[in-house]
């Protein structure tokens, strides 16, 4: 802060204007713009994928066909946890080791 007056020297030193912080110049918000552009691109890509999926689904088989495959697979394969021998006691795999 400038000192006020002297001891009658006559000259008045004008005080400096108080500091005035300036905002930085306004740069274009490239980061935000690029981010927004990337978001749009992502959505537009998603539209392409969804259209593709819709097309595939149009030609897709009904759920009953898939259910049939599940049933056929499960009944067509043996399972050591569901032994299906009529009466004979049989052990296999892990079981024969532990009992």
């Amino acid at each position: 802060m400038a000192a006020e007056g002297g001891d009658g020297g006559g000259t008045v030193v004008p005080s400096l204007p108080p500091p005035s912080p300036r905002s930085p110049p306004e740069y274009p918000d490239l980061y935000g713009k690029r981010r927004e552009f990337a978001k749009v691109q992502m959505l537009e890509r998603e539209i392409g994928f969804l259209q593709e999926e819709l097309k595939t689904l149009e030609a897709s088989q009904p759920a009953s066909r898939c259910c049939k495959e599940v049933v056929d697979f499960s009944l067509g394969n043996s399972d050591p946890l569901i032994l299906m021998f009529p009466k004979r006691s049989t052990s296999c795999g892990f079981w024969k080791w532990v009992w």
């Binding site: 050591p80 946890l81 569901i82 032994l83 299906m84 021998f85 009466k87 079981w95 532990v98 009992w99």
Partner: peptide, 10 residues
């Protein structure tokens, strides 16, 4: 550890 311990009918 769990394992099958029985006899199952068809």
């Amino acid at each position: 550890i769990w394992a099958f311990g029985g006899i199952r009918k068809v």
